[in-house]
Amino acid sequence: MAQIFSRKANTLPTLSLMAALGGGVFAVFAVWYFFSPEYTDVGYAPPQPVEYSHRLHAGQLGLDCQYCHTQVTSAAYSNVPATQTCMNCHSQIRTESLKLLPVRESWVTGESIEWVKVHKLPDFAHFSHAVHTNNGVGCETCHGRIDQMEVVSQVEPLSMGWCLECHRQPELFLRPDDEITTMGYEPPSDYVQQNLQRVASEKILPPTNCSACHY
């Protein structure tokens, strides 16, 4: 009787098995990478209702982070400034600019500007800015060179693993308290040594137990 399958078909089972294994490995890798915050979150730069440029204000003009984000050392949330803060200057500067029209409208009508949140942590993770900025973590460490961004983008994944990198070895990331808002800070060559001393003397103990953030 004639064979339905030729001899060449004998390779099929082996081939399909290898393909399945390879595909499986590839699927695992794909999910591991493409579903991780490194891929999904880093680089997220949504358009904002007002084309506010940090590069201009914080970079060129040299406004300090805390001029607008006033509660970053006293509260869990670092606040996005109210329209009033913008109007401090823009009631006199660029008063006819079309880009600032939504700001002026908000000021006049009392309606808020709805900024798009860029750095988002899930609801089951509680994060406090105050605790970090008061213990030597600079704005730049987590948010990157904001002063070079036309549109704010997320540069760090903000995943738990990423947080633990610092929490386990804070001496590699801390900076002096007066350099918290410095953009482009160049640490001295012995900064790890200095930080180790600081960690010991100020008892900086970043918690690594679950209930520190998840509760």
Binding site: P46, V80, A82, T83, S112, V116, K117, K120
Partner: peptide, 21 residues
């Protein structure tokens, strides 16, 4: 698509009010 979440500050903020506190 990633859901968009907004931050909505005041236009004229009341004094002594810290969001979340």
């Amino acid at each position: 698509r990633r859901p968009v979440e907004t931050i909505v500050p005041f236009s004229r903020p009341p004094e002594h009010r810290i969001p979340g506190v």
